[in-house]
C-alpha cells in the first residue's frame, strides 16, 4: 500500500472525492426540495393556519416527548398519523374537538402513568394545531408507519 498510496495521493483523494459527493448530494437535495413542495406534501395547502399550528407545536416543544414521522423523543406516541388513528383525518371540526378535549384532560394525574402537561393554548391556536397535524398526516411518507399504532 505504501508505494501506490502516498500521503499526498491520499490527501487528494480525500479532498477531491468529498467535493464530488457534496456536489451529488446538493443536486439530489435540490430535486428533493422540489419534490416535497410539488408532490409529497401537495395534498393539502400549506395555509397560514397550518403554519400557525407548526409554531404552536414548536413553542411547546412537543418533539421532546413525541415523535413526528418517527423523529423526536420516544417517551410518548407518534403523532404523524394521529389524525388517522383517531379516525378524524377527513373531518377538521371533529379533529379540533377531539384534540381540544384530549389536551384539556391533561395532566391525568394517574399514579404510574406518563404525564402530559397542561398547555396554555387558545382555541384559535388549538384549531391551527389540529390542522397542522392533519397536514402532517397527509404527507406521502412512503407508506410509513407500518401500522396505525404509529
Amino acid at each position: 500500500m505504501s508505494e501506490i498510496l502516498t500521503k499526498s495521493r491520499a490527501r487528494n483523494i480525500f479532498y477531491g472525492g468529498s467535493l464530488f459527493f457534496v456536489v451529488v448530494f446538493v443536486a439530489m437535495t435540490i430535486h428533493s426540495h422540489r419534490y416535497v413542495v410539488n408532490v409529497s406534501t401537495a395534498g393539502m395547502p400549506l395555509s397560514p393556519e397550518v403554519i400557525l399550528g407548526k409554531h404552536v407545536w414548536e413553542r411547546h416543544s412537543c418533539i421532546n416527548c413525541h415523535t413526528l414521522h418517527g423523529e423526536g423523543a420516544y417517551f410518548a406516541p407518534e403523532l404523524g398519523n394521529v389524525m388517522t388513528r383517531w379516525g378524524v383525518m377527513d373531518d377538521p371540526e371533529t379533529a379540533f374537538e377531539t384534540l381540544d378535549g384530549w389536551m384539556a384532560a391533561q395532566p391525568s394525574g394517574i399514579e404510574g402513568r406518563r404525564q402530559m402537561p397542561l398547555f396554555k393554548i387558545t382555541p384559535e391556536e388549538m384549531r391551527a394545531l389540529a390542522e397542522f397535524l392533519r397536514w402532517a398526516d397527509q404527507t406521502d411518507t412512503q407508506g410509513w408507519p407500518p401500522t396505525d399504532a404509529g
Binding site: 468529498s18 448530494f25 428533493s32 419534490y35 409529497s40 423523529e71 412512503q142 408507519p145
Partner: peptide, 15 residues
C-alpha cells in the same frame, strides 16, 4: 454525505 439518505426514508422525501 450520501448516507444522510438513511434519515430521508419516511419524512416525505423521494423514494
Amino acid at each position: 454525505i450520501l448516507g444522510t439518505g438513511h434519515h430521508f426514508y419516511w419524512i416525505g422525501l423521494p423514494e
